[in-house]
Design a protein around this nucleic acid. Sequence first.
DNA 1: AAAACATGCAACTTTTTAGTTGCGTATTGA
DNA 2: TCAATACGCAACTAAAAAGTTGCATGTTTT
Lengths: 131, 131
Amino acid sequence: MSKTENHISGAGGDTEFADIFAALGDPTRLAIFDRLSDGQARSIAVLSDDADMTRQAVTKHLRVLENAGLIESHRIGRESRYVFCPDRLALARAWLDHVAGRWDGALMRLKSFVEDGPAPSCDKHLKVKED
Amino acid sequence: MSKTENHISGAGGDTEFADIFAALGDPTRLAIFDRLSDGQARSIAVLSDDADMTRQAVTKHLRVLENAGLIESHRIGRESRYVFCPDRLALARAWLDHVAGRWDGALMRLKSFVEDGPAPSCDKHLKVKED
DNA sequence: AAAACATGCAACTTTTTAGTTGCGTATTGA
DNA sequence: TCAATACGCAACTAAAAAGTTGCATGTTTT
């Protein structure tokens, strides 16, 4: 396995995913990201128009999203245009899917436990796990 | 439509989703949430065991996750047990799916634009949108 | 060339977050 | 009963995030 943990939920390699979620964890950034999801490239000035804050503040939010890999910027003439970037979004979705799937699996196992009775070596169900 | 915006991406109702992502936007909380996704209820003490910080710090993280609706707590005797809570997670997934779907749609429209030529009243593609 | 536009950088204030420590209380078990 | 366990609350520090202002720079437009 390479040093850059690329598998889902590497028990400590959560930092990469946390950065993505942290970038989305702000209403302003969420709105910007949502707006850019139509694929249109937009300048900072345009993105600042309907935000109730300074252009500089919007710029900072854009940098956060960019550092998280959720958007990209390229300069055209005097303006910086930001575009949607789907890769990290896919990663975040994969992580949530993984977690949700794990819970579904646990549900199913609990269901068969109730229906079929305890499976072999299954005596600690519904107790606090010591890990 | 009710006052509590329940549809996906209500252009201003992003705060609810932002709270969910913000709660996940921390490596410690992400690890806790991942750990709880197996459906097992765990006490604060157990969850603090392999965290390199104080029990109080872990408690605060648990409160953040709980306020976001991602986990729930119930007290049994002298201990508080936290359990996974799938509802808000589903919301977050739905939001990401919505955004990803919007981008896929934009891609497809761009593809047919390239293949079939500009559609009627479609003269502003690839320009900065003024909104 | 001059004005208007779009942005970047740096310094600053304010607020939030992360984490700690100390202490008090209820619960469990010997 | 006594000690260990599990937790909550409050006060505190330190660091990061959010946002502002002022100014400098490059780019269009007229």
